[in-house]
Every structure is written in structure tokens, then in C-alpha cells.
Write a protein that binds this DNA or RNA. Sequence first.
DNA 1: AAATACAATGTAAAGGATTACATTTAGTTC
DNA 2: GAACTAAATGTAATCCTTTACATTGTATTT
Lengths: 327, 327
Amino acid sequence: MPTIQDVAKHAGVSVATVSRVLNNPSSVAELTRKKVEQSIRELDYSPNILGRNLRNAESKMLLVLLPKISNQFYLKIVEGIEEKALEYGYNILLCQTHSKLEREKVYFDLLKNQLAVGAITMDPTIDRQVLVNMAKRYPFVQCSEYVSSKNLPYVTIDSELAAYQVTKYLLKQGHQRIGLINVSESFLYARDRKKGYLRALKEFHIEPEEDWFYSANDVSLESGQQVMRSILNKKKDLTAVFAVSDMLAIGALKELNTRGIDVPNEMAVVGFDKIEFTSMTYPSLTTVAQPMYKMGEISVDMLIKKIQGEEVEDIILEHELIIREST
Amino acid sequence: MPTIQDVAKHAGVSVATVSRVLNNPSSVAELTRKKVEQSIRELDYSPNILGRNLRNAESKMLLVLLPKISNQFYLKIVEGIEEKALEYGYNILLCQTHSKLEREKVYFDLLKNQLAVGAITMDPTIDRQVLVNMAKRYPFVQCSEYVSSKNLPYVTIDSELAAYQVTKYLLKQGHQRIGLINVSESFLYARDRKKGYLRALKEFHIEPEEDWFYSANDVSLESGQQVMRSILNKKKDLTAVFAVSDMLAIGALKELNTRGIDVPNEMAVVGFDKIEFTSMTYPSLTTVAQPMYKMGEISVDMLIKKIQGEEVEDIILEHELIIREST
DNA sequence: AAATACAATGTAAAGGATTACATTTAGTTC
DNA sequence: GAACTAAATGTAATCCTTTACATTGTATTT
């Protein structure tokens, strides 16, 4: 690759002038600028980002941390992030943490080394202290999942309310015995959605039984299927289940189909997120739509603001109950 | 962040010694090494990758280029790539090209700037010449989709054969009128799978009619659904369809379900790839399993070899016909 | 004890870009 | 035309690390 030196020599000017053409064109005479631009084109020169970053302590890369891309929930968020980031002239680095600290550390190093200038995290469960410390030094924004802390703004939805509404909807449909397919309560959304579920039950004076609660090992189709398997093996009198993630709901639905259990008549199923596949299942899945694309976009807006040193406020977006065939 | 200077001062040695402790520990006396390591720990120092790369002209980042992560097909591939890359001590940069050259260029710049040292591409349709030129200068490996060229090794499956087998299977099941849901023939796999399909028909002395061929706008559930819609509106006598991607097949399946058309009795459906969701559909989808995870792993193996200057051979992996309920 | 070898460490250049400061050039004013 | 100003351009330091080469110190050989 040609360097700025090569361009300077070719155009018969100093490196400073070339640099100025690149970064502050108005400060150089038109004739000179044309000459330099010509050389740049002829040599097919593009500035070395390393040299530039090293000097400027700034890059145009954003970190996007998420547990696993196999969870469809992140898909639309990432699309929103990418689109918006590109608009601002940033690139994104998609990082799967697998909820493991050592993985996260590798990516945090990119921040420390100024290879990236900020991060959007969707998996803050790992180590709160590490996250809080990083956020002191580097711009961080939380998307969907979050911990409350100074310097750690978030964009999310009101999970408790959404879960409350979903459960209430089921109750109004006449369901008296509603199971909850949850994930590890280390996740905030797991705790919140459980809260909402309980609040609705309480309002209807229903005391949940111990074996209405199930926890999936992870957020995957497989796990959803497994949980439904154990529900059916154990407990036959539930008339509805609320899964805190579409991935789990779809897995559960599959198990019901396999066993020939009629959905929604014998068992109603609701999910959460409104991932694309929920309209492809049989029957199509009732779920809570999260504005994922928008969440992604807003995360970037917030992060850019933080990078520019502005104050940023937490944002809670609207959700929407999508009623389809599974209830 | 502390720099190597700070560490040197703190430990009372020169920067060269610190650098040696980091990169070639055996070349420094044990006592000194201990001292330096102590300082590194105390200051929580980690080397600045920019400075290092700038000097070494090497980084530990691999580019992964794909059209869109929303196509589930790439999911497992990426998982394989990531796992293997991490094993080698590399990180990956996931890049969605949206099959647009200008997007790709942004990412190619990262290579030119030594921010990344090699690339795995799954979308070589964009501009063959650009790709060939890049591959002259930088290590490239093609995964799944490929163009034949020197310096551009690939790992893939035998799409033609797989399509031939699938079609033959349908024919043996007694299907006489089999539709093909394809994508743009700018994709090699689209051409190959069509070839295989035609070969099987020929073998059974069946002359395909013009309106057995359909092309989706892109590889998405939505498009699959749309295509099936137009098939059903137009042509009612097909007894089976072969979709060249599971995404399309699942969309098609949905449309059949919606219209109350019995699968497989009124219409059989087969897909291609064996993405995770194919076992969750109703009915579960017959498809061709591609060893996606393995393809990802092998891509990385190949790329690392290329980076190290070794010669690399093309690899064709085995596929497998997965017969399920949709046929 | 002088000469030699080798291990350990230090010095300084290099890598590519930006930019404060210095210098040159051209234009304005009297 | 001399003195001054402002614009245009150049020089060189800087960012952080690695490493060739230089230097120091210690041990071994004769």
C-alpha cells in the first residue's frame, strides 16, 4: 500500500499538505488540493487507520456485545445498529460473549487499545463490577438487558408491564392455570417478566402453584422443547404457557405439535419478542413485539452522543401485544 | 491507559526489556522478568494493539463477509468460524455486505490497513474482479459460495449432486410435477442446484414446463411465502416443490398451511441447508444437511494456513439428505 | 591476567498519520 | 517600495510498540 509519504512525493508537496487535503481541505489552496487529490487517485491511496488512530486516539469502530447470535432476538437489533452506525460512518464489531467473562475481556481490550471507541452491550449479566469500571473510562450503552448504574444508560422496554399485560390477556381468555417458561433469573428481564406475570395472577386472585414455574437452561429452540417435554410429563392440567422468549415458545410449540396436543384449544402458548419466525409457526405465535430494530438504532444514537461527551438519558420504548393463532 | 514507557519506568528497566518480557520472555533474566511482570500487574498494563500492529504489520483479526446475517444458514457457519478463530487466538469481524460493493469496500479497507489479516467470504457475487485483485494481495478463503480463481480456495459442498439426489428422491416418491423455488442465478449454488434438479428430471424422462421455475427476490421467509403465493395463484397441479434454501421452504410451508393445503399429501416441500428451524416447522421439513459448523471451522483452518504462507487446497464436504415429514 | 564469548540490557530508528509551530509567499496599505 | 498581514505550506514532534544494533557485564579459556 502506498503511504502518505508516497502521495506527498508524487504530488510534490509535504506530508502535512496531503494530510490537510484529507482532513481539512478548505485549508489548502485549490490548485494544490486538486494536485494532491489527483495523486491520491493515481496511487490508489487510502490512509492507514492504524497510524491515524494511534495519533488521534480515535477509531470508527463500535463494539456490539451479545451472548449469542443464535438467539434470533438480537438479529433485528443488530440490523438496526449496523444501519445506523454506518450512517454515522462507524463500523461495528459483533462480539459473542457466550456470557463468559474471559471472552468479554478480549473484546474490552479492543476498547482499551482504542481500536474501538464505544460499546453497546446486551449481556451485562457477567460481571457487574467489570462493566461499571469499563463504563467509567469508555462510552457504554446498554440495550435491552441492563444494570442500573451511573454512566450506563440503557434503551429497553417495560418487561414487567408487558408480561403483566400478556398474562392478564390469558386470564381474560379464561385460562386459570398458566405456566411460566422462564430463563435464569440472573437476567433482569427474567425477573421482570416473572414479576409482571405474578402481578396479573394476583389481580385475578390466583395463587400460582409451585410446578407452574419452569426454567430453561438457555434461550434456544431446543431448550424450549425440552421444557415443554418436562411440563407434559409432569403436569397435565395447565391450559396455557407464557414463555419469556419466542425461541422457547417455538420449541414448546413444536413439542406440543409432536404430541398431537391442540394449540390453542388444549394448550395456549405465548412468546415474547416477535422474532420473524413467530409468524411461520403452526399455529402462528401470539407474542409481545419489541421494537428491536428501533432499539438498535437508538442504542447507536445514544452511544454516539456519549462518545461526543453529551449526557444521555435512559429510554423505555413501547411494546405491543400481537395476538395470533396460538391463543 | 499506562504505556510501555510507564511500565519500564516503574520497573526500572528500558522499554526494550519490557517488550521482550512480553514477546520473548526467555531472552530476559528471570529476576528482571519477575520485576517487569510485577509492574505490568500493578499498573494493569496491556499493550496497545495499534502500536504493535503499526510496527509489525500484523493483527489478529479476521474478516467474515456475508450478505446478511438474517439468513439462518450463516449462523452455524459463523459459530464454527468464531470457535476455531478463537482457538488460534484470532478475533473475527462480522461484516454484512448486503451484496453491495460499497459496503464491501469499507471492509476491504480494514485489510488494506492491516487491521485485519485475512478474510473469509461467503458472498463473492458482487464483483469478481475486485475479489480476485484483493486475493492477490491478501489471504482470502471462500466458504460455501465461490468463484474459481487462483489464490481463492474454497470449502463447499457438491450442490449439483445434492439437488440431483433430492429431486430424484421426490421422483421416486412418485412426484411427476416438481416446482423449483430458486434465487437469482448470479449465485453459483442457484445454478448448480438447478442443474442437479434438471439432471434428475432428465433421468426420469420428464420435460419440465416453463412455469415450474420460480425465483425469489432474496433469501428470506417473506420471499418464500410470496413465491408460494404466486405458485398457488397460477399453477395448481404441482405435487412437490424443491426450494434451494430452507428460508424459502419455510416461508412456502407457511403459505401452504395458511391456505389449508395438506403437506405432504397435496404438496410436498423440501428445503436445503438444514437450519435449526427446519425441525420446528409443521410439518418438519425435509432438507439437505450442510455441515455448516464444520465448513466454518475448515474455513478458518484454511485461512490460517494461507496467512502463514502455505498452499491450500479446495475442499468439498459431504452433505446428507434429511427426510422428515414434509415429503 | 588478558582475550574471548555470551548473556542481558539499553539506545534509537521505524512504522503511518496528525498537527503545533515555523517559515515562505502573496497581497495590502501607506 | 517598505512594512505588515494573512494565507499556504513545510518541518518535526508525537502517538506506542518492536527490534536491529550497540553496549555493558560476567564467565570461560588460555
